[in-house]
Design a protein around this nucleic acid. Structure first.
Lengths: 218, 218, 218, 218
DNA sequence: GATGAATGAGGGTTCATTCAT
DNA sequence: GATGAATGAACCCTCATTCAT
């Protein structure tokens, strides 16, 4: 289902070396963006030769895509964990928000995604979108549908659109804890100290989202 | 309040030449991203010499910032127009959404912003955030407060956080109509034809946002 | 007399593998030239490891030289065959020309030689010259001398120089049927369809060479 | 008629700098061949920046083509000079041979051509062929036709094919004085000291060519 | 002897910026 | 002020060769 961006050789090397390469590459890409990341530097920092790197990945782009995909799988696990819990649907949303607060700060992964949308990587971007969103889209939609089935969530809203709105909110929140631009924006909206008021943020967002999704009592 | 990123000389040249430079630069930056945009090419396409460009802007970065700021003022006007109308608060939100659908498609401006968050421009990003968000933050907060004062909007939600949530949704929506990555993501969530179902989208989002903000009747 | 360019190990492997390596290498070198030919690719296509290739040949250069020498032996056989026939001397020349037309088209071997003279391989080139030309030089000189002894060829011309002139003509002709550059040149001189007029070409060259070599009747 | 391979900017710089670049490039290309020639080194040796070089020529290939074309014009002039003289046709051929002996030794130009036929430059080669051979083809054919008209040259030979044979001989001779491979080959055929016996060589070739072309007396 | 993963120097090309005119 | 030619550091990628297994 999801296309592999590395060459088979990459899968044959020791897990340790593989991790090292991915972690160095993740850091470099997330810190400098795609264009400003130096492949030769990644090689040096990862303790492998450029030649080897090019044995593992055809191009800089393929390495980048691999790094992104590896990140997707991590996010997937977090989401999956919340999804599997037996809290009521709306409580799960709170768990997701708290998980975002916990994991997004300084998250290289999230910063990585922040840079993907850049038009300079148009084709690359499109290629990632499906892989990347496929995961959360599936889980969020599932959650919404379950909620609707159980009467927790209003039936008069489209599951896809509701999931889209949820992800919009969560994605923005992730960026707001990970990328400087969005941190600043968060402060402009919610106050200079907002990044230190996690419980307040959770409370407010939960209130907002719950009202948005809850079956309207009348 | 907002720091000027061009040199004074830029303000002395003919309005026509100034517009030409900004429009060419906007197109180039939005199409290629910051890194992949060639200053010399902008000069050529705008019909000025590189030397002149560097008389107007200290660096590529400053030109970029100027382009972004010019864009902000445009957005500001759209928002301001909606804000000034005498519709009820919640109807204004619908106007904003429709305005997003009308103006964001193929919007060079929005694409430009999509690329800003890239970490490669970390410092640059932060610098833009205040200018950029200052505008909408002010207007959205104002709207929320008015709505709360008039009883249309629930009083138990923080105006800043509510404005933040609104902007999260609107910003994501803008990207979803302007940048390939987000277009794709939109399709993944809401169906392959979602970009052609504007009324449906408006209806769903309005429903979502209204419930989220509306005073809960009981 | 002729120095061996491979290591002894190359002679110990199976004839089949040896042939495979030589045929792949011949194709690659003739298609891409010396510099643009990739040793690792030859190894892969020939079904041996690079390591082995370097067990058989010290350097890329030695492999190339071996390929060239193997080719020389093939050419030698063709020439030898004509030489051994019992046609009159001048008829043998026609046989050589026809043989060139038959064998040079798309000949990897000839293309290979076309690339040798390149100065980038100065030392390499010199090294090949003796081996390569030793063969035809010997046969052509022999032919001339026999012709002179039998009165068919004028005695007032130096056998070495005459052989040299013959080879100049034949070599140029070979390239004209094998290498794009010389094909084009042939067309420029003799018309766009010259490569399809083999009998015409033979007739003209025979006429030219015969007059040049024949004892002048008076 | 002949396509220009440099950018217009190259024609705007000082003749001195232009000459310097061409002479350095000619030397480098003829000594190392196309592949092994380093553009950055040419820039340094010519006293210009790489950036400038790339302002004058789009690619390494274009620089190479320009160098080759500049050489063609030089050869053209030599040939044209002989052609314009009022010697009898067959005497002109002797002049050409002597001119080859005089100019080809260590000729970077001829070495350059020696490397062109290499298959590695297939497309490049074809592109040069027309320009390059157009010149001599035209002059040689003209000479032959004049000779035929004046009764000096046999009428029963095709002018194009005769010109082709002449060029084959002259081209081979040029290489034999300029490229190591062909020098060696020359020695193999005509003796170790052949490169020092210019008059002998002239005499033999003239004899050969005259007989080949002369109207047969009977 | 055979393997093939690993090496790393090297080079064509780009482009932000400068500065002499 | 305007020009645009000149600069040169920087980077992705290739591939001949080595060597541990």
């Amino acid at each position: 289902m999801e296309h592999l961006h590395c060459k088979p050789t990459f899968l044959n090397i020791s897990a340790q070396k593989r991790e090292k390469i991915l972690s160095v590459a993740t850091r470099e890409f997330s810190e400098n963006g795609f264009e400003n990341t130096n492949i030769n530097l990644i090689a040096k920092k990862a303790g492998v030769s450029v030649g080897s790197l090019y044995k593992y990945f055809d191009t800089k782009r393929e390495l980048f895509l691999t790094v992104v995909q590896a990140g997707i799988r991590q996010l997937e696990q977090t989401l999956e964990f919340v999804y599997q819990s037996d809290e009521p649907i709306l409580a799960k949303l709170e768990s997701v928000i708290r998980s975002i607060q916990r994991t997004s700060r300084d998250s290289e992964l999230i910063r990585l995604y922040g840079g993907i949308s850049a038009q300079e990587n148009a084709d690359l971007a499109r290629e990632i979108a499906r892989d990347m969103e496929g995961v959360s889209a599936r889980i969020y939609k599932e959650l919404i549908r379950q909620g609707q089935a159980q009467g927790e969530i209003r039936p008069d809203i489209d599951a896809g659109m509701a999931a889209f709105m949820l992800d919009n909110i969560f994605m923005s929140l992730q960026f707001s804890y990970a990328c400087e631009y969005y941190e600043e924006r968060f402060r402009v909206y919610a106050g200079e100290d907002i990044l230190d008021r996690d419980d307040f943020v959770v409370g407010q967002i939960v209130k907002f989202v719950k009202s948005a999704l809850q079956r309207q009592e009348e």
